[in-house]
C-alpha cells in the first residue's frame, strides 16, 4: 500500500550545526527517508546554510563532525539540494565556501554532477509550493 504512493518531500533546514542538534537529527531523517523512494528535496535557508560550510573541524569541541555525511546524500539519491542565495549573501558566503556535494546521474551515463543549486527567493518559494510534505527542522 505504502509503496505505490510517491509524495514530494521538502526538508527545510534553517539552523546552524553543533549549537543545537537539529541539523544532525534532520540529516538522519533525510537518510532514513531516502529508503522510502519519495521525491526528496532539501532547502538550506538562513543559518541552515552553515550546515554546508566546507572545512568543518570539530576536534576542539569533542563533538562528532557530521559534515562528511552530507557527501553520502548523492548515494542515497538525494541530489536536489537548494541553497538560498540571499542567505549566503547576508553571511558573506559564496558557492566556494560550501562542500562540493555530487551525485552520479543515472540518466546521463552516470556523469558526476553537483547536487547543490543556489537559488533565488522566487525559485525557492515556487519549490516550496510544489511540495506535499514540508518537514522543518
Amino acid at each position: 500500500m505504502t509503496e505505490n504512493v510517491t509524495k514530494k518531500f521538502l526538508y527545510v533546514n534553517r539552523k546552524a550545526p553543533y549549537g543545537t542538534i537539529y541539523a544532525l537529527e534532520s540529516l538522519e531523517v533525510v537518510l532514513i527517508g531516502a529508503a522510502f523512494e519519495q521525491d526528496v528535496s532539501m532547502a538550506f535557508i538562513d543559518d541552515g546554510v552553515y550546515q554546508l560550510k566546507k572545512d568543518q573541524s570539530t576536534d576542539g569541541i569533542g563533538m562528532k563532525n557530521f559534515s562528511p555525511t552530507y557527501n553520502a546524500l548523492g548515494d542515497y539519491d538525494v541530489h536536489k539540494i537548494y541553497v538560498d542565495k540571499e542567505s549566503l549573501d547576508e553571511r558573506g558566503l559564496t558557492a566556494d565556501d560550501l562542500m562540493n556535494l555530487v551525485y552520479e546521474d543515472e540518466d546521463d551515463d552516470y556523469a558526476e554532477k553537483s547536487s547543490i543549486s543556489i537559488v533565488t527567493r522566487e525559485e525557492l518559494a515556487q519549490l516550496m509550493e510544489q511540495q506535499d510534505v514540508v518537514l522543518s527542522f
Partner: peptide, 20 residues
C-alpha cells in the same frame, strides 16, 4: 520505533503539522 514511522506519517497523512 524508527524514523521510518515519521516518513510513513508524511506519506499516509493528508497534512503533516510540525510543532517545535
Amino acid at each position: 520505533s524508527g524514523l521510518g514511522q515519521l516518513i510513513e506519517a508524511g506519506i499516509q497523512s493528508d497534512r503533516l503539522v510540525v510543532f517545535g
